[in-house]
């Protein structure tokens, strides 16, 4: 009798204690499947089966294997364009491969947003530990290649304290620039001979050139961007 009561009480106790506890159970590592046609974009499914749209059999999402020197389908290094740096050197984008790349599009004669974007970039750079700095490249791409000659880019870099090797300022052709902006989802429009209207977006690419993070807006908190960069270099 006594024991039964105790047991009942014990159960009651446990019941009440766990009843109050709404903690989530740890997520198990799950295997995911994807449609080989990517009918729903990059959507993955937890169960094997067929794609609800094209009815093709779902395939296992393969662990992303990146072989040395090989780039994925989503890498910006698929873009074949050639650019000119602030040191008047021609480079192809894929020469940036191997480093984490932080990228923003600006124009040097910009009176309002660009100095702030440049400041944001400097702030991000400051927060990268000294021993990791060599693994991160900070890139500013001009949306006004007509005006922004390599000389102007160099002057802008000097003015904005971007003279270390980590900083790369680029200008391309008008078409390359438009295409590059399309990849970054940066919108811009020339609104007067010297003035552009443009989106303020800072993007982070991993060592293979895949876009991993974007932050839009001026004067926004870049903590997330910085932690993403640190995560990539460590």
């Amino acid at each position: 009798m006594k024991n039964t009561l105790k047991i009942v009480l014990l159960f009651l106790l446990i019941g009440t204690l766990t009843g109050c506890n709404f903690g989530k159970s740890d997520k198990l590592e799950t295997v995911t499947y994807e449609c080989p046609m990517f009918c729903e974009g990059e959507k993955t499914y937890e169960e094997p089966g067929t794609c609800p749209i094209c009815n093709m059999d779902l395939t296992l999402v393969a662990e992303k294997e990146k072989k040395e020197g090989e780039i994925s389908d989503l890498s910006i290094y698929n873009l074949p364009s050639v650019w000119t740096t602030q040191h008047n050197e021609e480079i192809e984008l894929k020469e940036l491969q191997g480093n984490v790349v932080v990228m923003v599009m600006i124009y040097t004669s910009c009176p309002a947003a660009c100095p702030r974007l440049a400041a944001d970039m400097r702030n991000i750079e400051k927060q990268i530990p000294a021993d990791k700095k060599k693994d991160v490249t900070l890139v500013l791409v001009s949306i006004d290649p007509e005006t922004d000659t390599p000389e102007r880019l160099a002057a802008f870099a000097k003015e904005n304290l971007m003279e270390s090797n980590q900083w790369v300022l680029l200008r391309g052709t008008e078409a390359n620039t438009r295409e590059f902006a399309a990849v970054l989802a940066v919108n811009y429009k020339r609104i007067s001979p010297l003035d552009f209207s443009h989106s303020n977006i800072i993007s982070v690419f991993d060592q293979g050139g895949e876009l991993v993070h974007q932050k839009e807006g001026l004067g926004v908190n870049h903590q997330e961007t910085v932690s993403k960069i640190l995560e990539l270099v460590n």
Partner: peptide, 11 residues
């Protein structure tokens, strides 16, 4: 019992 009750109550 009181203990259980108080637990229940607090919950």
């Amino acid at each position: 019992l009181a203990g259980v009750a108080s637990l229940l109550f607090s919950c």
